[in-house]
Design a protein around this nucleic acid. Structure first.
Lengths: 230, 230
DNA sequence: ATCGGCGTGTTACCTCGGGTAACATCACAG
DNA sequence: CTGTGATGTTACCCGAGGTAACACGCCGAT
């Protein structure tokens, strides 16, 4: 029985197919098979391939749908007129709220792998690459880092993205605390609390009398809290 | 002509097979096929499956080989008797030196995916999970974080691991600077340089007269460098 | 010496997922 | 009525993980 209900055509049909794919991914996570998606759409594989070329095309299109929203939210948070610490917290909270609201979708955005034999394994998925670039741009335009600005902002963009990705994944799986507390924990880390905190009694410490074991220059005897320029 | 040169047996043979697998992964990256590995070893697939059960078994065994070294190095660095900042730099340098020295091997450790349809997509590979746990343990035993210690150290372990993973991957691909500079950039981030740096002229800032756009409490008007407790 | 067990190896096959070729159908424009 | 462009189909190819079923060689026990 071919085409009893006249299917929409062109771009409309494509949207329908993406909706079906969305449902399957929502249900089975990334790595859903093309067959499964086709079945969900009530059709067979070749149609999917006509519309999207290959699997990457499909999940790419599916990804873009959701990336734009997340990216816009993060970008907006990065430009919120707040004190810097509050702005950072706002960005962190925005991301965590997003992955919390629809975990499967953001698993797709953050770990779209599932059979990708590209020799060059880049850690950050496209969506996260874009987020990293947003952070880099924000740091570059908002924070005065002197001559090291370009390098530091690029590095920090990736670093912060990876940090929040890993911490966010763990938080999603374990739910060790409410979201606000997670935001504080990460912001505290970025705010140098690791540097400011005191030593614990039995902890290892810089050997005062004997010279350190000659592996790195080890520089000055003590580093105060204010960061070095490197 | 079966068995003209008497092959070693048992554990020895297993090591040989792992050597072959190592060579293939070195050459083709993770995602190398079982057929390719078998061919490199001069045999056929079923033998590999007899020794390692399935693909996960093989890459697991292969991974453990290298994980121990990296893990030991990181653990040692975490307990080096240095000033805290120098210790952190030492850890960062240890990791970056490792991934620099044998990129393909550490790509295997950090991104072993390549076809892993496990529904629960955990971001951190086993090797990185172990590193995160080491960091957590070190923070917990060395740094005085008060009542928040357990949560913060766990969070920070994952966060720092993800941060160095993402930044390290980017650094390996782009080589934007020598290793020492990368170490400084990351240590500076962890040392609160983002909090300490000044504003740039045209940057967005907290709106003094008008109230902020009513989305988060936004707390005190200004946060000094010393971190809040959360 | 011989028999069984173990570890070695093989060929041939199964399943599943991505991807493609060739063909059938409808609808609409000229 | 015919061509074009969309829809859809069945049937196939290929590569990768994984599994029988079978064959050889060694070595120790009876």
């Amino acid at each position: 029985m071919p085409t009893p209900p006249a299917q929409p055509t062109g771009e409309l049909r494509r949207e329908q197919l993406l909706n079906a794919a969305d449902r399957v991914v929502q249900r089975e996570g990334p790595g859903a098979s093309m067959n499964a998606i086709a079945a969900e759409a009530g059709i067979t594989k070749p149609i999917l391939y006509r519309h999207f070329g290959d699997r990457n095309g499909l999940i790419g299109a599916l990804t873009e749908r959701h990336t734009s929203g997340l990216l816009a939210a993060v970008r907006a948070a990065l430009n919120e007129p707040l004190e810097r610490r509050d702005r950072v917290e706002h960005v962190l909270d925005t991301y965590l709220a997003a992955i919390e609201s629809r975990p499967q979708v953001y698993r797709l955005l953050t770990h779209p792998e599932a059979g990708d034999p590209t020799g060059a394994g880049s850690a950050l998925a496209p969506a996260l690459r874009q987020i990293a670039e947003e952070i880099t741009k924000a740091v570059q335009t908002q924070v005065d880092l002197g001559a090291d600005g370009p390098l530091l902002s690029e590095t920090w963009g990736r670093a912060v993205t990876g940090m929040v990705l890993a911490a966010g994944d763990w938080w999603l799986e374990q739910r060790p605390c409410p979201r606000a507390r997670m935001v504080q924990a990460l912001a505290d880390l970025l705010w140098g609390r690791l540097a400011a905190a005191g030593d614990l009694p039995g902890a290892v410490a810089a050997a005062q009398p004997a010279p350190p074991p000659a592996e790195e220059p080890a520089g000055e005897p003590a580093a105060e809290q204010s960061p070095r320029t490197g």
